[in-house]
Each structure stands twice: as C-alpha cells, then as structure tokens.
Nucleic acid binder design. Structure first.
Length: 931
RNA sequence: GGGCGGAUAGCUCAGCGGUAGAGCGUCGCCCUUACAAGGCGAAUGUCACAGGUUCGAGCCCUGUUCCGCCCACCA
C-alpha cells in the first residue's frame, strides 16, 4: 500500500511547491463574470510597488484568502482581485534613491520620459516579485484579472472621475497655503503630514511701535518667518494693547511698516505676550488671519525652503540657517527679549521625514463636504458596517472635520492631470519654483486666471482661440485618488461591464486600520458618488503586525521579515543582522500553512499583534500533527472501500458518537466565528478539536477496534476516522490550504471534485449533536485522567501497567465505566480494573477523587508510592478544595445572595458546595488512611 | 488640546457580571508500533492602583498611574 510510505514528518516546502501551480492551471481561482452562484468579491488592497512584501502584507493576503476559500467552498462565485499600487511619491523616491546610488544621477539628469521608463522597469521587477510572494502564501487570487493603478483601464477611470468631478464643480484649482515638502518638492495632503512632538524654544522679540519709543513684544517659535510678517495681532479685548490697534509697528531687520490688527480668533491673550506676529504665507493660522484682514502674503521661502529675495539681506539661506542669522542680529540689536524652552509639534513629510513647510501655491483640490456627507450617512444608517466597531467613532470624527483634499503633486510618477493649457491664448501654468509676486497676492475667491481645458483626451482645438498647441498640466494626482476608485475601476468602470453588475458592491473590504482615512474613507466617498451605492457592506480592519518586541516593522530598523524567508527558510547570509542573531544557522522553512495559521490565530481584534516566530513553529508542529494523525489512519484502513457518506444509522460506539458530536460542534463554532470575522476564534476552535479531542482521544480510542478482531467494529471505526478527517481537512482548508489538499488527496473518498479547494465546506448537522454521548464520556475521561494523575505524580513509567479500583456511589457511573472499561484500561495503562460501590478501600493505594462525579480511584502501588509525597499531594488538594469551599460559603453567608441572585445560580452554587464537601470528605478520609 | 486602545501566569494573549483560561516557555516521567515537531503528568496569578454600583466585579461606573496609537493650524 502506498499509504505506508508516507514520510514520518510533513515537508511543507515540497507539497506547497506542487499544489499552487496545479490549482492555477485548473482555473480554480477564476471567477465567472456571470454566474448562477451568488457573488462574493474582495479586492486586495493593492500593495505599493515600492519594493517587495514584508510580513505585514501576509495578513491581508491570509485573511482574505481564508474568506475567499471559505466562501468558494460554500458555493459562491468568488472574485478576489489582485493588484498593485503605483504609490506615486514613495516609488518615485525609491527609484530616485537607486538612481543616485547606482548612477549618481538625479531624475532631472534623465528627463521626465527617461525617468518614467526607469520607474516602469522598477514596477515590472517588484510587481513580479509581489505576485510571486502572494503565490507562495497560497493566495487564491484571480490572476486573469490582475490590475495596476496605472494600467490603461485604471488611467481611463481616473481621467473619467477627474473630468466628471471637475464638471460637477467638485474639483477646482486654487492658490492656497498647502503642506509642502522641501525635499520632495511637492505638495502633500494633510494626511501625508505626520506630527511629532519636539523640544523647541519660544522667543520673545521686540517690534518697535512707529512714532514712539515703545515696543510690542511678540512670541514666536519660528523667528525666521518674521521676514514674511505682514501684521502684528492682539486680542481686541486685551486692555494692555487696545489703544494700539490700528497703529503701525516697524518690522525689525527689514524695516517694513506693518499694521497692528485685532483678531479674536488668532490671539489668545493668556499665551506668551498676547501679541502674535502674522506671517500669512507660512503658517496656517496666519493664513486664515491674512484672508480675514486682506493682508499681503509674502513668500520668503522657495521650493527647497531657502529664503527668496523677499528676505532681503537674508536671501539665499536655508531656513534653519536663516533662523540663526535672524536671532543673532536681533540679539545684537537688543531686540531679543528672552528665550524659553517650549514643546511644539512639527509636521514631517510621511515619506522623506523632512520638516514640512506651509507654502502658498496653485494646486488642485477636491471639494469634500458634499462627498463626505453621504459617506457619513452610509455608516450611520448601517449600509456599511465597520468591524471592529471601535473604529466607527474614529471614522466619524475624521469625516465630520474633513478639509478639502489637495490632490495635485509636483511629481513625475503618477496620473498626469487631464488639464490642458492652450499655448496661444491662455496663461501658462505657473512655475512653482518661483516666488509668488508679493504685491499681488492671489486670493482663492479671485478665481483662476489661467483656466485650463479639462478633458478626457487631449483637446484638438482650443474653443477660445482655435489654437491647436496644448501643454498638459505637469502635475500628477495623489496616489490615493486612483486607489479610491479601486472597488469599481477594477471591475471595468466607467464601462458598463458584467463584472461591475455582478461584483459591485464588493462583499467586504478587508484592510489595515492604518489606511482607514487614506483609503477606506476615499473609497466610500467616491464609490457612493460614482456608483450611487456603497462600495462594500462591511469594512473589516485588521490589526497591524509588529515584531516580537512590539515595534513597527521598518527597513531602517532592520526588523522587516520577508514572508518567503518564513515560508521557504533562509540562509544566514540572506537574513538581516538582528535575525541572524536569532537564527545563526539560518531560518528554518516553516511553510505557508504555518505562517497563515499563526496570523489567523493571532488576529484578535486589538490594534496590533506581535508576531513571534516561535508561534509559527508551534503551528508548523500542528500541521505535522495533522499529517501524522492522517498517516495513522491511512496505515489502518485496510479493507475499507472509498467512503461516500457516513451511514447515520450505524451502530456507533460511544467514542464514535462522542467524536462526531464534538466535530459537529466544532464545525458550527468555526462557521459562526468566520461569519463574525473572528479569525483567531475559528483557528483555535479547530486547533483545540483536532489536537486535543480528535488526536488525544479519538485516535487513541480507535486503536482498540482497529487492532481488534471485530471486523464490523473495525470498519465502523475506519469510516468514522475517514469521515472525521475529511471534515477536519475541509474545515481547515481555508487556513492551511496546502497540507489539507495534500492529505485529502490520499484519503479513500468517493469524490465529486478532484480538489479540496472546490469541495463543499462542512455544515453542522444537528443530527450529530449528541449531548448524551458527551455526558457519557465525561466519567470515562475523568477516570483515565485520575489514574494518569496518580501515575504521573508517582513517576510510574508508562510501560508499567498498574491495577486500579474505582468506587462510585452512582450506579449510572459504575455502569458506564463497566461498559467502557476497554476504553479506560489501555489509555490509563491499567492491568486490572475493579469497579464497585464505595466500600473497603485498598491498602497501600494512592487515591484520587473525581471532581464532578466524586468517584474515588485507587491505584495500589505498594512499594512504588512515596507515602510522604502522597500525603502532601492529598493535603494540598484538600487545601485547594477548602479555598473553593470558602468562596462558596461566603456567598451563602450573605443572606442577600439566596434572596436576590437568580435561582439557577443559587442552585448551581449549592450543588457545587455539596460536590466540594463530598470531595473534601473523601480526600480527608484517604489522607487519614495513610497517616 | 481632543479621541481611542492596552495593563490578567515567566512570555504572547483569550475571557467582559456567577468555580481565573489557552498557547509558548519551565519542571518531572517516557523513544507506549501516527507524530520526540511527540506522549503523560505538574507548578505558576493581591486579574495596574483607588473608590463606587451589585447578593456577587478582571468583567460595569468614576478617578489615578504607566504604555501605545490616532486626530488637531494655538504663536
């Protein structure tokens, strides 16, 4: 029989390499555009093409594959869309960095077209790598529908969305103060700015009042921006300064005369000196103040945050150098009153870490309010449910305070904005490298003088002057603009495709909570706007993977783990230094199944999970356990015909009924947990059953009939074994696709399909629920455990059989034990078993008293047991029972307990008190016997 | 400044009103013919602190202390 040749240990690497290509070539991953089956669709959050995947990416791949495989086996027409995100700014930076390193060139050296060619090369390289990593994870993605955010179809969707929003007045161009990264030379959205608390200073500076020898003392954390001050503000009700409102101060260093204004919004009279310098072009508060008071706006920094000629004698300096010079000169002129330590929060560019500089510039925006409102309502009305619910408040808080979205980026890699400037009649788009004309500040309400033509295609003729030469807006769109269309752009939108009809809305959005705003919120807004329906009824937000110390995985920290290293193993030289420390011999191949099961098992609904490779090792052992249980079965199936179905009316033995009942309950709990996205619950339910019920008990109990003479009992046991394994494998398949397929193929089953991945998912069948069998097994298990306890405590070798005496006052317990004594004896290692009503107790025997049934178990071990130890053991047991008794008594000592607590509870406690008293009495009796 | 998590066994975490649990690790006995990646047994907790509600509180409420995260234009 080939089965006997099964190796003792499961080799994941070998099996995993075989199955993925098989499944793929048979087309199991492909969805039908039109089908009788109910649709189920998930779009994979497209990973950034900045590099290869790290272990964090294995989470969405695993969880979504679990859902997809479960639903596919449950009869759904499943579509799981693979894709990759061009990740504009991030990828451009990676390629620029590589270019600098390998060729010592900048993107400007190459020019836009050549640089883009290089980025596309990068995309091909890492895109392929990412797809490969997903395949090794076992992700059953429909590769025939793989997409990229910058492929032609996605680009068409982006242009369509942009033009429609523009025509609806929801996209506009405006000169505003935006977040600018002086290193990346681009605008950023609010979300792309990360805040960090830093130690800084608060400087107090004297501004001389014109025509007086008095000063106004302003407080600032950024003294260099005074070069761009166009006013000084005080609170209108501040008695200290009321008389100065409307007067003029002379800006130190530059000598510019600026007004003293009153502004209740900007100024908090309690803070600092109660006087605020106003720099509208370099601070968001000051900008608003500037708009309110129509102040001039002077840009003193260029795109690299170096001072412009507006800074007069300070022109041409880096902003931090400018600060030093300004402070030194103020000091020299005696205008610096004092410096105090001050904590402040600085904005940093998410990608480069550079301190962001607010900057006045012409950008494209999405008018957000009318898009946000329906997205808020959808969650309020439960059209989209957020799981875990704790994120709902966060979603609302952000959505209700949302600002217009700056979507233009001064980058090369991305979707170029479909706006065209006629070369002959309209003003050219402004060059952003130049400082804006300070004497003619452009206010948003003044509109856009250089109105472009916004169009899906490059226009043929200018409608104003008939010109035919156009220049396309050089800017590209924020990466998240195209991602926001993903749930429908991947299905063919704006074309009216069958896929769109079948799979929109998607079934669930499964992603990390870190991109709730970046991505989920935008999909909600754009999905509802363009498709008139929410993009998905459920958002499941998973926790973030951290390393075992709880730190974020990042390349710079060197704690990123390549999922392929975990799956396939890695040589020492392939590992990062910190990993090599832990794995000096290299990383072992844990296999995709073990990795996936670990991620599922750790996926509690917290904020983050700490991944330890020791856990992966534990679940690798689980795969091996399953393998060996199957191997045991296969070695003992001689004579069994391939199993079609388990006869429900067979004359099952207690163990059969018990395991079928437990299996059935496991099936029910697993499906319920999956329905609630409780991956950890589902995984541990199966784990617990497979290892600690099926393997520990049923497999052991099956040895009797399998090795015995009763042919009918053998056949029945074989059938239950095969049936149970079949169910277990199918239950487990979404979590551990490879080992389950590998084993399932070897089982003698009558199959209607030739892969487990398209076999039906188990359904709980109430007819298998058998509380009676479970109750009947309880005393058997208790007796076995009691005897094992005695043996273990006395260090009796497993090979040594011992006699046992069990006494119970309950005739039903006695009967059960008598009937199933052939279960008890081999599992407890008992040579002779005597079952009786309580009576004379054997001499020289160790004793154990059952917790629930109160049965007394005696193992006469004359000469083997150490009486001192036995005494200590019983005494300790009594102590423990006393503690429990004490806590129960305390309840009854309180008269309110019996009066107010529910009757069931009181009864339960009373029964428990009786049980405990009985147990205590017997333990004491046995203790006395020894003494 | 606002908001949200977390604090339970050595470690990682379940439990969220009625007998404190799991996995890993630790300790003992075992190569018992599926599995030593294994079997059997054992030990281990002022459930962060202080109040309150309740017959009864890791669990609910209030406050405190730490740790972490998110949002926010107070110089």
């Amino acid at each position: 029989m080939p089965n006997a040749e099964l190796p003792k240990a499961y080799d994941p690497t070998e099996a995993e390499a075989r199955w993925y290509p098989t499944w793929m070539s048979r087309g199991y991953f492909r969805a039908e555009a039109i089908s009788e089956k109910p649709p189920y669709c998930i779009v994979l959050p497209p990973p950034n093409v900045t590099g290869s995947l790290h272990l964090g990416h294995a989470v969405p791949a695993t969880l979504q594959d679990i859902l997809i495989r479960w639903k596919r086996m449950s009869g759904f027409n499943c579509l799981w869309v693979p894709g990759i995100d061009h990740a504009g700014i991030a990828t451009q930076m990676m390629v620029e960095r590589e270019l600098k390193k390998t060729e010592n060139k900048t993107r400007q050296d190459l020019g836009r077209a050549e640089f883009l060619r290089r980025v596309w090369q990068w995309k091909e390289r890492y895109g392929a790598r990412i797809a490969e990593q997903h395949r090794f994870l076992g992700a059953s993605l429909d590769w025939s529908r793989e997409r990229f955010t910058m492929d032609e179809a996605s680009s068409a969707a982006v242009r369509e969305a942009f033009v429609r929003l523009y025509e609806e007045g929801l996209i506009y161009r405006s000169k505003r103060l935006i977040n600018w990264c002086p290193a990346c030379h681009t605008a950023l959205s609010d979300l792309e700015v990360e805040h960090e608390e830093r130690e800084g200073s608060l400087w107090e500076i004297r501004y001389p009042i014109k025509g007086s020898d008095r000063f106004l003392v302003v407080a600032t954390t950024r003294p260099e921006t005074m070069l761009g001050d166009t006013a000084v503000a005080v609170h209108p009700d501040d008695p200290r300064y009321r008389d100065l409102i409307g007067k003029t101060v002379v800006l130190p260093l530059l000598g510019r005369e600026i007004p003293i204004i009153a502004d209740a919004e900007l100024v908090n009279p309690e803070f600092g000196t109660g006087v605020v310098k106003v720099t509208p072009a370099h601070d968001f508060n000051d900008y608003q103040t500037g708009l309110r008071h129509r102040l001039p706006m002077i840009s003193i920094f260029d795109e690299s945050a170096r001072t412009t000629r507006e800074a007069g004698p300070y022109a041409g300096l880096d902003r931090f150098e400018a600060r030093k010079r300004v402070l030194a000169d103020l000091q020299a002129q005696g205008l610096l009153e004092r410096e105090t330590k001050h904590k402040l929060s600085v904005g940093l560019c998410q990608r480069s870490g550079t301190v962001v500089e607010p900057r006045l510039s012409l950008q494209w925006f999405v008018k957000i309010e009318s898009l946000a409102r329906p997205a808020i309502e959808a969650v309020e009305q439960g059209k989209t449910r957020i799981v875990p619910e704790t994120w709902v408040a966060t979603y609302f808080q952000w959505m209700r305070n949302i600002h217009d979205w700056c979507i233009s980026r001064q980058l090369w890699w991305g979707h170029q904005i479909p706006a065209y400037y006629c070369k002959s009649c309209s003003a050219r788009p402004q060059r952003r490298g130049r400082a804006e004309d300070p004497t003619h500040p452009m206010f948003p309400e003044e509109g856009d003088r250089a109105a472009p033509i916004v169009s899906r295609e490059r226009p043929a003729k200018c409608p104003r002057c008939r010109g035919t030469e156009f220049e396309q807006d050089p800017d590209v769109l924020d990466t998240w603009f195209s991602s926001g269309l993903w749930p429908f752009s991947t299905l063919g939108w704006p074309k009216d495709t069958p896929e769109l009809k079948t799979f929109y809305p998607n079934s669930v959005m499964e992603t990390g909570h870190d991109i709730l705003f970046f991505w989920v919120a935008r999909m909600m807004m754009l999905g509802i706007h363009f498709m008139h329906d929410v993009p998905f009824p459920v958002v499941y937000l998973h926790a973030m993977v951290r390393d075992e110390k709880g730190e974020k995985m990042s390349k710079t920290k060197g704690n990123v783990i390549d999922p392929l290293h975990v799956i396939l193993g890695a040589k020492p030289e392939e590992l990062s230094p910190s990993q090599r420390n832990k794995f000096p011999q290299g990383m072992p191949a844990y296999g995709a199944d073990a990795l996936r099961f670990t991620l599922a098992a750790l996926m509690q609904q917290g904020r983050d999970i700490k991944l330890s490779l020791d856990r992966v090792d534990g679940y690798k052992a689980f795969a091996n356990k399953l393998w060996n249980a199957s191997r045991f079965a296969l070695m003992n199936l001689k004579g069994l015909e391939p199993l079609a179905e388990l006869a429900r009316d067979a004359d099952f033995a207690l163990a059969d009924r018990w395991v079928l009942s437990r299996l059935n309950r496991t099936t029910r709990s697993t499906v319920e947990a999956l329905s609630r996205f409780e991956f950890a619950e589902a995984a541990s339910t199966i784990y617990q059953f497979v290892w600690h019920e099926f393997c520990d008990w049923y497999v052991e109990l099956s040895k009797g009939p399998l090795y015995g003479d009763d042919a009918q009992a053998r056949k029945r046991t074989q059938s239950v074994l095969v049936y149970s394994l079949d169910q277990i494998l199918r239950l487990l398949h979404p979590f551990m696709p490879f080992v389950t397929e590998e084993v399932w193929q070897k089982l003698p089953l009558v199959r209607s399909v030739n892969s487990i991945m398209i076999a039906p998912y188990p359904v709980a069948d109430p007819r298998f629920d058998d509380s009676e069998a479970e109750a009947a097994m309880a005393p058997v298990i208790e007796a076995i455990e009691g005897i094992r306890n005695i043996r273990g405590e006395s260090n009796v070798s497993p090979s040594m059989k011992v006699p046992a005496v069990i006494q119970s006052a309950d005739p039903a317990v006695r009967q059960g034990l008598e009937r199933w004594r052939h279960y008890l004896m081999p599992l407890a290692g008992v040579s002779s078993l005597e079952i009786s009503a309580p009576g004379a107790k054997p001499q020289q025997a160790a004793a154990f008293v059952g917790v629930k049934t109160g049965m007394e178990i005696f193992v006469p071990l004359a000469g083997l047991i150490d009486l001192t130890e036995e005494r200590a053991r019983l005494a300790k047991e009594i102590q423990r029972v006393d503690a429990d008794l004490e806590s129960v008594r305390r309840k009854f000592d309180n008269p309110n307990f019996a009066a107010k607590a529910p009757r069931e509870v009181v009864e339960k406690e009373r029964a428990r008190a009786d049980e405990l008293s009985l147990r205590r009495a017997k333990l004491q009796e046995n203790l006395n016997r020894i003494i």
